[in-house]
Design a protein around this nucleic acid. Sequence first.
DNA 1: GTCTATATCGGGATAGAC
DNA 2: GTCTATCCCGATATAGAC
Lengths: 205, 205
Amino acid sequence: MARRLTRDSRTAIFRAAAHEFAERGYEAAGTDRIASRARVNKAMLYYHFGSKGELYSEIVRDMVGAVGARVREVADGQGSAAEKIDAWISALVEEAAARPWFPPIMLRELAARAPHFDAATFQMMNAVLAGVADVIAQGKREGTFRDVDPLLTHLSIMPPILIFFARQRVLASRTLRGGLAEPRALDQFVRHMQASARGMLLKQP
Amino acid sequence: MARRLTRDSRTAIFRAAAHEFAERGYEAAGTDRIASRARVNKAMLYYHFGSKGELYSEIVRDMVGAVGARVREVADGQGSAAEKIDAWISALVEEAAARPWFPPIMLRELAARAPHFDAATFQMMNAVLAGVADVIAQGKREGTFRDVDPLLTHLSIMPPILIFFARQRVLASRTLRGGLAEPRALDQFVRHMQASARGMLLKQP
DNA sequence: GTCTATATCGGGATAGAC
DNA sequence: GTCTATCCCGATATAGAC
């Protein structure tokens, strides 16, 4: 059966829940509020998803799977390793913008020791890391990259992106304190991250 | 009155609560569990702190204040800008190790739009940023640093440290999936971050 | 300062009509 | 597929004895 084009109640609940989980966290999120955001009756949530936990898991799998697919696509594509690093950063930023709930949920899961990640989710995260490792291996073969640790490299790129988006949300909901802390434009941030990654990875930047 | 050397019930509650909030988050943390961890009666929590929310706020202020003080100390100290960047990274890592609840609580607050940060806390966070800006300005005066954005620089350094520690906690509570994802030694991570920061900031690394 | 017992409330989940 | 009404448990908070 083909996916309906109309936004049916299931999809509405999915999106409403993603936003609710992102803003409040799994425990504090309310099924009442999710139903109200989705403009459906609360019982529909249990009809479509069975439980709050199952609904959450589906959102997490969708999110991690989408990121994994994008990174895989970049790693398997054409171009030099340096170009792929740029593309990788752009892809992560695009995903974070397309699914605004991705950074908050990911940050919360990391803080909580990822209690809601199942084996499939961990496998998808390892796939992301494998993609990064492939690009770094390519860079070493091409002679342009230093001998860097793939995991530590990943840990230098992904977290700033997650927290940049989370931070923009913080600032959006507050009166600014002025000075240095104002929000930055997205493209300025992307260029900074790409330049920063080149400084970190390339033998001669 | 001098601070008691014996670990009184107030201190026990403070530390137990810090760990509980770090692991479960503010909403999911239980006053029952905090009291049980601290091995005191639950009513003592309300006697000493008034409410769950006040207890949490005190932990947050202590945490952000300690980090702010360390960064300020580094910025105002002796040494070249490049040395201060190294010291800054070491100081953040030491703080995260000394207060293990710091990274998880900070990540959760960012994800939640920092709903529990009061004006004083925001001011302390701005002080951290000001310290970074001072060091970068020094580096530019010395002619060794590129013209980088202080905020974006901060956003490239702090998040990896927070998430590195959070990630170690994830791995510690799971059977490893093997391969590239195994935990890294702390000193290896520090050296990576320092090298990475030099690549990002220095004109000629 | 420390403890027991309890008031009170919100939220996840379900039964069952339509 | 959709809705109403309700069960039930866990969690914050407090009253009041010692």
